[in-house]
Design a protein around this nucleic acid. Structure first.
Lengths: 144, 144
DNA sequence: AGCGTATAGTTGACTATATCAACTATTGGG
DNA sequence: CCCAATAGTTGATATAGTCAACTATACGCT
C-alpha cells in the first residue's frame, strides 16, 4: 500500500495512530480516549492549567474540552479548584489516582511511540517532528 | 506553542489539516469533506476501482465507505457499474462532472499543500512522507 | 448439478467526536 | 456602579466511525 501524497500519508497516519492508541489504552483498561490523553498531558506539563489553556493548546472547541474535563473529574483523575485571584479560572490538577494513572499512561505511550518509530533513527524522528511543527505553524499563521 | 512529543505533533497536524482542507473545500462551494476527497483520489488513481479497494486503501469501515460512495453518486460525481465478470463488484468511475470537479480539487489541494510546505525543501517533504509511510507500516504490520 | 463457503456491498442501530449558540458567573476598566 | 470582556457550562445538533445483520453473487467441491 504505497503512500503517494502528503495528505493521504497524514490522514492514514493520524487514523492509525488514533486506533493504536485506543487499543493500547483499552488494553490498559482505562476508560480514556486520545483526547483525554492529550488533556492529561497538557495538565501535566502546564502549571496552573485551566480549561482555557487546553482549548488554546489543542485548538478544539471549548465545549468539547469542558466535557472531556468533566469526564476526567468524574473519573477522579483530575480535580478543579477556583483560582484565588480570579474565581472564573478553575485550575486543574491531578489527583493521586491521576498521578498514578499518568505514569502508567506514559509507559503505554512510550510503547506505542517505540513501535511507531521502529527502524527509524532518533534523528529521523526529530526531523519528522520538526517538519510537522513547521507545517502546523504554516497552517495556523499564514491564513490570508 | 511548542510541539514536544510525536503524538501531539501528529494530532495537531492532522486536526489542522482537516480544518484547512475543509475550509478550502467549503470556500470552493463543494459539498465534500476530507473523506470524500480521499475517495475521489483513490477512484482517480485506481483503474477498475471498487468500494472494496477504497476500504483496503483507507483502512476504514466498509459501512462508512458505502455511505461516502453513495453520497458521491447522489452528487453525480461518480457512477457505479457492475463488473461483467463478477456482478458483485461495482466499479466506480467519474462522471463528466466528477472529472471537472476533480480538476478543481487538485488545484485547491495544491494550494493547501503549498501552504503547508512553505519554507520546507522538496527533500524535507519527501523525507517527511517517507517517514510517515514507515510509521504507518510499523503500526499496521508488527502488531504482536 | 447442487451444496457450502467466501466475497462485495448495503443497511440499521448505535457510539463517539465535534461544533454552534445561548447561557451564567466573575472580573477589571472607565 | 455599570459594562464589556473572559472563563466556563450546557443543550441541541451535526459529523464521523463502528458493529452486526443482511442480500446477492461467485467459487470450489464431491
Amino acid at each position: 500500500m504505497p503512500q503517494t501524497s502528503l495528505s493521504s500519508a497524514l490522514f492514514t497516519l493520524a487514523q492509525s495512530y488514533r486506533v493504536t492508541v485506543r487499543e493500547a489504552i483499552n488494553a490498559n483498561e482505562l476508560g480514556l480516549n486520545a483526547m483525554h490523553v492529550r488533556c492529561l498531558h497538557i495538565i501535566a506539563e502546564t502549571q496552573h492549567c485551566t480549561a482555557n489553556d487546553i482549548v488554546a493548546k489543542t485548538g478544539r472547541d471549548k465545549a468539547q474540552i469542558a466535557r472531556l474535563v468533566k469526564e476526567l473529574i468524574k473519573l477522579e483523575l483530575v480535580s478543579k479548584c477556583a483560582d484565588e485571584n480570579d474565581k472564573r479560572c478553575l485550575i486543574l490538577s491531578f489527583t493521586e489516582q491521576g498521578n498514578a494513572l499518568f505514569s502508567r499512561l506514559e509507559v503505554a505511550e512510550q510503547e506505542v511511540d517505540a513501535k511507531l518509530c521502529h527502524g527509524l533513527t532518533d534523528q529521523q524522528v526529530r526531523d519528522f517532528i520538526a517538519i510537522a511543527t513547521t507545517m502546523i505553524e504554516n497552517i495556523n499563521h499564514n491564513t490570508p
